[in-house]
Design a protein around this nucleic acid. Structure first.
Lengths: 111, 111
DNA sequence: ACTATGTTTCTAGAGATATCGAATTAATGA
DNA sequence: TCATTAATTCGATATCTCTAGAAACATAGT
């Protein structure tokens, strides 16, 4: 992941509403949620929600696919993983020995 | 780290210039860099740089301390770690089983 | 074709952010 | 005190983002 893509993804998540949307989709799992489900869950006006979903989509964090009348949204994990990898690799140096086990891949979370 | 702090940190990093500043400070290590060093390294006008450093400071990602005439900036790792932790905990679920029930009641849509 | 539902696009105003030169503040040394 | 260096704050403008109602578009069922 390059600097521009990282900044775009970070920017997309750097908004409480969009962060809430993304977290909701993550919780929803692979099945994702229809736009209307997200709307009912979070209470955002349709046009506002659409605006934010488009942002997340442009950043590659959320994928949308039409199913009949609905459009289902799901979190696109690879981009999030790439982002976390970018942050740990480029922004977390110098913290500690980084014994090479730490969080190389992001799944670490030993605690 | 709560949602607001996370969004603020993400927003702060969601800008290529600020991301470049932060990465430079991480590379610089614990000693940090004087504002002027960052300016010479990245070529941003002083006022623009000051603006972005203030952003990073408000997000808690960068700490500044005056040393004589210079103001030294250094990456504040704990906040970055908290952010990475937040992302892995709250935004990376579902990458595998996740055994839970996913979306409890937010909009049950089990697909 | 018509209607109902789901979602986006259009539109517009308010507000936030980016940019950067100029003026200002802060510290140092002569 | 004056000059110099370091950095911020001020001020002004351009651009972007947020918000949300209204209109348009897409699909499915009758």
């Amino acid at each position: 992941m390059n600097d521009f893509d990282a900044a775009r993804a970070l920017d997309a998540l750097g908004n409480v509403k969009r962060l809430a949307i993304y977290r909701l989709l993550v919780k929803a799992g692979d099945g994702g949620l229809a736009v209307g489900d997200v709307q009912r869950a979070l209470g955002f006006p349709a046009s506002t929600l659409s605006h934010h979903l488009a942002w997340l989509g442009r950043a590659g964090l959320v994928a949308q696919a039409r199913h009949g009348r609905e459009i289902r949204c799901r979190a696109d994990y690879p981009v999030m993983h790439a982002l976390v990898g970018y942050l740990t690799d480029s922004c977390c140096v110098g913290v500690q020995p980084a014994a090479d086990d730490a969080a190389t891949d992001l799944a670490g979370v030993p605690a």
